[in-house]
């Protein structure tokens, strides 16, 4: 049940996009609109997408957030959240990540997939996702909430494109055939020291269930996940704060690794 008119949606989208582009933190939007609901929040996020596309940017992929059953229970929701990745979010492995373009970046290790065919919900299953996944690959997400001190609620974060900011892909791409995505271990190192470890099951029990849930959530808007889409399935490790000069390496069981540095 939407609580905002179209003009307000557009105004909030412009407000949050400007915060992102200028790397300037803002107060969470529910301070001003306490009744904001999920439908409003996604309406704002999709309005940001339209703004990006009008400016000539391309959607480079989709990402999932809040992909832990325990965290969902804490937040009192039954679905994770999704957001958009735009072309200029992509940082090539080895290239410096410009810290001055971000507010307070944090790094998460994730598993990414690229689909070879469309996926649509409702009722999308891991089986369908497995059959549709062309490549599984390591990816690192750099999140950067536009909200002051990362202080937000769920609807505010959805409107803010789920804190999406940058991402790096790399390592070894593999077919999902024969890959144990639940038990696949991940080691996150910051400046040469292990700061977090995890395994694929941290993402909704199985990283591909995250893709199935994405298809189901998009179906609510009459959308599908088109063939060729890159999807980041959700953080396996905790998000680790990064500053200028930090470098990170993520090592994956059977999938190689990725390095990134904050310049």
């Amino acid at each position: 049940m939407s609580t905002l008119d179209a003009d307000t949606v557009d105004r909030l989208a412009a407000h949050l996009e400007e915060a992102e582009l200028k790397a300037r933190e803002v107060e969470k939007i529910t301070d001003e609109y306490p009744d904001l609901d999920f439908e409003d929040a996604y309406a704002i996020q999709w309005a940001i997408r339209r703004r990006k596309e009008r400016a000539g940017h391309r959607v480079a992929g989709l990402k999932m957030g809040l992909t832990s059953w325990a965290k969902m229970a804490q937040m009192g929701v039954e679905q994770p959240i999704y957001a958009h990745l735009f072309d200029y979010f992509a940082v090539n492995e080895g290239a410096p990540l410009r810290t001055d373009e971000l507010i307070h970046p944090k790094v998460e290790a994730e598993i990414g997939v690229v689909l070879s065919r469309d996926l649509s919900g409702p009722g999308c299953t891991i089986a369908e996702v497995m059959a549709a996944v062309d490549v599984v690959l390591p990816c690192v997400e750099v999140i950067d909430s536009r909200y002051r001190d990362f202080r937000f609620d769920l609807v505010s974060v959805i409107a803010d494109n789920a804190s999406s900011a940058r991402f790096v892909t790399g390592g070894v791409g593999r077919s999902p055939d024969g890959l144990d995505l639940k038990g696949l271990g991940v080691v996150l190192e910051k400046n040469g020291q292990v700061v977090a470890t995890g395994a694929g099951a941290a993402v909704l029990g199985h990283p591909l269930s995250s893709v199935a849930m994405l298809a189901d959530m998009l179906a609510e808007r009459g959308e599908t996940i088109p063939a060729g889409t890159f999807v980041m399935t959700g953080g396996i490790t905790a998000a680790i704060a990064a500053q200028k000069g930090d470098h990170f390496t993520v090592r994956y069981q059977d999938l190689g690794g990725i390095s990134l540095r904050f310049a």
């Binding site: 059953w69 325990a70 271990g185 991940v186 080691v187 020291q193 292990v194 470890t197 995890g198 395994a199 694929g200 099951a201 941290a202 029990g205 396996i236 090592r251 069981q253």
Partner: peptide
């Protein structure tokens, strides 16, 4: 219910 995940490097980093 999954209560935790980790990897080998949790051993002494």
């Amino acid at each position: 219910e999954i209560t935790a995940t980790g990897a080998g490097a949790a051993a002494l980093g």
